[in-house]
Amino acid sequence: MSTTAGVSPDPSRAADHEALLAVRDLTVSYGGLTAVKRVSLDIAPGSVVGMIGPNGAGKTTFIDALMGYTPAQGRIEFLGQRIDQLSVHRRAMLGLTRTFQSLELFEDLTVRENLQVSAEDPKWWTIFLDVIIPNRDVRAPRVDELLDAVGLKNYEDMLPAHLSHGDRQAVSIARAMVSDARLLLLDEPGAGLDRNEKEGLSQLLREVAADGTTIFLIDHDMDLVMPTCDHIFVLEFGELIASGPPDRIRSDPRVIEAYLGTSGDNTEVAAAERAAGEPGGEDR
């Protein structure tokens, strides 16, 4: 892996590229409530794309719909193939995976096994071999590499319950990355991380993107989103209200209004302003 931040495609040219993920008119309704309203967007391969929005804007629901956890109307194309009717694990097999805000680690498996499960892709008949020769872990080097990358090498035989929250978050991210998915959907990966850990995370995400994995990231934390992402979407009340590179999003009056308009969530506004005052971010 390179140590410098990867150069991603110019987001203004994203529309010209064949999109990795193309979403058209995605709508999610729960009873009378519409959580996501006719959202359409494209994600270019190799980029780091962010989605921000106030609490309850529908960000997590959007990821749930992309992965197939919640029924949705509309069209989702991934690698040029329609996936909106596929089950979750089918979408995952095509190269789409996610992390969860509540982490959802495999609490009954060790840290290493958490990554192994995600890295392996056995066939249905593997079980017949498994009961005779169990240790055929061809993906072990990749697992080791990621355990190193997120600094969990020393904890690999522990159960997740014994790790700090930051380390649990690292397991969650490493577990998603080790699957070699084409597109990673990260749900609040910065939650519970301290400032240093966030900088490390930002750098890791840039590196992963430079290696060709596309990243879609939702987070509250402007300190993480602004410097990390090439392109940002803004969601409010389930609708896409803005889209563009970080500089443009910072100064977009609708975005500022959306953030001010939500019951005075001052920490986020302050974070947005602070990030706006430090062009280019602080971690490079």
């Binding site: 992965m67 956890y69 089950s87 979750v88 694990h89 995952a92 097999m93 995976t97 996610r98 969860f100 959802e104 680690l105 495999f106 609490e107 009954d108 498996l109 096994e113 192994q116 499960v117 995600s118 392996e120 892709d121 056995p122 593997t126 079980i127 498994d130 009961v131 005779i132 020769i133 169990p134 240790n135 055929r136 872990d137 577990r175 998603a176 699957s179």
Partner: peptide, 26 residues
Amino acid sequence: NLRKSATGRRMLAVRANERAAAAARI
């Protein structure tokens, strides 16, 4: 052997968390 193998890990992953298991191609 099952416990040490990929299939056994998948069973335990399903036991632990069905949502996350599906995202891990299970």
